[in-house]
Amino acid sequence: MINWKVRFKNPVFLAQLFLAFFVPLLGYYGLTAQDLTTWGSVFNLLGGAFSNPYVLLLIIVSVWNALNDPTTRGIEDSQQAKRYQWPK
């Protein structure tokens, strides 16, 4: 089990999750953040991503890497991390 409450209190985790979602999109479509100057361009990018199975796979793998703790088996947090109330 993942200690979601503590992870979402950690701004580094939130940034990592955001980047895990958007970096594969920008890389696949050859864009930079500067290219997303309107909400319409953001929604077009998201619509194209969700209709492309390869891009979805890239996003899933990237998010998996952001969630996974390599020091534990599977996708669980360690026993010590499960007891945290705030990020350490």
Score class of each variant (00 low, 15 high):
residue 61 V to T: 11
residue 45 L to Q: 09
residue 28 Y to Q: 13
residue 44 N to V: 03
residue 87 P to T: 03
residue 43 F to R: 09
residue 49 A to P: 01
residue 70 P to I: 04
residue 88 K to A: 05
residue 80 Q to K: 14
residue 46 L to I: 14
residue 35 D to Q: 11
residue 78 S to F: 08
residue 43 F to M: 04
residue 45 L to V: 09
residue 51 S to H: 06
residue 64 W to L: 13
residue 69 D to M: 01
residue 18 F to M: 09
residue 63 V to M: 13
residue 67 L to N: 08
residue 50 F to G: 01
residue 49 A to I: 06
residue 62 S to P: 03
residue 84 Y to W: 15
residue 12 V to Q: 05
residue 69 D to Q: 10
residue 86 W to Q: 10
residue 88 K to D: 10
residue 9 K to V: 02
residue 52 N to Y: 09
residue 34 Q to E: 14
residue 36 L to F: 07
residue 18 F to N: 11
residue 82 K to N: 09
residue 9 K to T: 06
residue 42 V to H: 03
residue 76 E to V: 09
residue 74 G to T: 12
residue 31 L to S: 08
residue 78 S to R: 10
residue 69 D to N: 15
residue 34 Q to C: 01
residue 13 F to I: 02
residue 60 I to G: 09
residue 37 T to S: 12
residue 65 N to C: 04
residue 88 K to G: 12
residue 77 D to N: 15
residue 48 G to P: 01
residue 29 Y to T: 11
residue 73 R to H: 13
residue 40 G to F: 01
residue 61 V to G: 05
residue 66 A to M: 07
residue 6 V to H: 04
residue 42 V to R: 01
residue 52 N to H: 12
residue 60 I to E: 11
residue 87 P to V: 00
residue 55 V to D: 08
residue 9 K to F: 02
residue 13 F to L: 02
residue 77 D to R: 07
residue 40 G to T: 06
residue 37 T to G: 08
residue 72 T to P: 05
residue 57 L to V: 07
residue 41 S to L: 14
residue 66 A to V: 09
residue 83 R to H: 08
residue 19 L to G: 03
residue 57 L to Q: 15
residue 83 R to V: 05
residue 9 K to E: 14
residue 67 L to H: 06
residue 76 E to A: 14
